[in-house]
Design a binder for these strands. Structure first.
Lengths: 243, 243
DNA sequence: CAGTGGTCTAGACCACGTA
DNA sequence: ACGTGGTCTAGACCACTGT
C-alpha cells in the first residue's frame, strides 16, 4: 500500500486504503459471493501491511455486511441467502405467528422512459430507460402488498430475456450483473387505497395502506433500484430499530 | 479485571468484561452526561488491563452511542442534545424544506392502571401503575401527530410534581432519574383516523394515519417507555435506513 | 507545548472448525 | 494436528485540541 505523502493534509488511515483496495478487488470479481478470502496473514503480505491493519479493514467490511467472518474457518464474501434478505432488508412482520419469506407473483415486466420520481431516485436523465417490474407479494396465502421495481436499463442489460424474475431479486442482481446491494433507504407514508389498489389487493377504496419508497445502493453507493410498495397492515407491521 | 477460570467453557473476552464494568460505573453515576471519562491509559491502570483492551471496550460503547470520543480532547458521556434526539431517535422528516425539532404541547398527564398493551410492552403486572402523557407535536406551525407516552410509575417516581414536561423527554429521564435511553424499537402500521384523531389532528375521519408503537430501552435493556403516536403523513414521511 | 484519542506494528496465545 | 479468526499486550508514532 502506498502510504507516502501523508502529512497532515489529506491524511487517510492505512486501514481505509486497505478497505478500499479489497472492495475494489471484490467489485472486480476476484472473489465470488460465498467464497473464502485469503487469510489475514496472506492479505497482509499481499498488501504490504501488518495483519492488524488488514483485520481492521475486514472488521469494517464485516460491519457493513459485505463480508462474513467465521472463527476457525475464514472470511467469506456475503451471499444473499433468503434469511439474510428476510432479516436485513425486509422489515414487514406478521403481528403474530411465524415469519415467512414473502412469495412473489410477477404481473408485468416492461421497459419505459423514467418518470420524475424514478429519475430523481436513480439519478437518470430523460434519455435513459428503466425496466419496470410489477408484482404481488404474499405472506403464506395472505396477500400482503403490491409493488413496482424500477431498474436502470443501462445497468441491467438483457433483463427481458430472463426466463423468470425470482423471489429473491437481490441474489439475481448479484449473480447476473455482479451488483451487490449494501444499503437501502426507505420513506414511509400512510396513504388511502385507490382503484388500482382495490383491484390488486382486494381491499376497499380508501382503506389505509403503508406506502414504502425504497432506493437500493450498491458497493459504490450508486442507486441501482427504486421500488414503490403499497402494503396492507391489518395483520402485519413494519419494524424499525433505532440505536 | 478478573480473567481467571476462563478455559473453553464460559469464556468471556476481557474487553467485554471491561465494557460491563464501565457501563456499571456509568449507571451508578460515577460520570454524569457531558463529562469526560479518565483517559484510556488511566482506565487501563485502574482496571489492570492494557490500553488496547480499554480502547476496544470504549469503541464498542461509542458504537452504541453511549459515549462520544473526540480526538485530542477525550471520551465523554453522551448527552441528549436536541440534535442527537432529532437525528437518532426521531425518524419523521418533512417531504421538502428544512427539518425542525418538533415542538410539543402537553394535553394531559395522569396515573393509571396499565392496559394490556402497556403491560406487555413494559413488562408490568396488573398491580403496577403507569404515568400517561398525552401531547401534540408540531413541525413549525404544522400539526404533525398526537401521541401518548406511558411510563412505569415504579421507575418514574414523583413525575406528577414536575412543573412541566419538556420537549425533550429523554433528557428529562436522564437528568431527573438517571435513565439513559439507548435503543428504541418501533412498529408501524397504516390506520384510519377515528373520531379522536379528527378532533385532535383536525383531519377527516377515515384519513390515513401512520401509527407508531415505540418501546424505549435503557442501559440495562429494560423497557422504560411505551409510546403510541398517530401521524399525518401528507407532507411528512418516516425515514428508515437499512444497512 | 502537553495531553488526548487514532493508527500501526509485531508477536504471543486462545477458541473454533475441520480433517 | 493444523489453519483460521479472536483476544491481548506493549510500544511507537501521528493527528487533533487547547493552553
Amino acid at each position: 500500500m502506498d502510504v507516502s505523502a501523508e502529512t497532515s493534509l489529506g491524511f487517510r488511515p492505512l486501514y481505509l486504503q486497505v478497505r478500499e483496495e479489497i472492495t475494489r478487488q471484490l467489485a472486480s470479481g476476484r472473489w465470488q459471493p460465498g467464497t473464502m478470502l485469503p487469510s489475514e496473514q496472506e492479505l497482509a503480505r499481499e498488501l504490504g501491511v501488518s495483519q492488524g491493519t488488514v483485520r481492521k479493514a475486514l472488521d469494517a467490511m464485516t460491519a457493513e455486511r459485505i463480508l462474513v467472518r467465521r472463527q476457525g474457518r475464514g472470511t467469506f464474501v456475503a451471499e444473499y441467502e433468503e434469511s439474510r434478505i428476510l432479516f436485513q432488508f425486509f422489515r414487514l412482520y406478521p403481528d403474530s405467528g411465524e415469519r415467512l419469506f414473502p412469495i412473489s407473483k410477477v404481473l408485468n415486466l416492461s421497459s419505459a422512459t423514467p418518470n420524475p420520481r424514478e429519475r430523481e431516485a436513480l439519478g437518470l436523465d430523460d434519455k435513459a430507460t428503466v425496466w419496470r417490474i410489477s408484482r404481488l407479494r404474499y405472506h403464506g396465502s395472505e396477500l400482503m402488498l403490491r409493488e413496482t421495481l424500477s431498474l436502470p436499463g443501462q445497468i441491467f442489460q438483457g433483463l427481458s430475456e430472463t426466463e423468470e424474475i425470482p423471489n429473491n431479486v437481490y441474489r439475481l442482481y448479484s449473480q447476473r450483473w455482479g451488483i451487490t446491494v449494501t444499503r437501502i433507504s426507505e420513506k414511509l407514508k400512510a396513504v388511502s387505497a385507490d382503484e388500482v389498489d382495490r383491484a390488486a389487493l382486494n381491499c376497499a377504496v380508501g382503506a389505509p395502506l403503508l406506502e414504502i419508497r425504497r432506493i437500493a445502493f450498491d458497493l459504490h453507493k450508486r442507486p441501482v433500484e427504486y421500488r414503490e410498495s403499497r402494503c396492507q397492515t391489518e395483520t402485519m407491521h413494519y419494524a424499525s430499530d433505532l440505536s
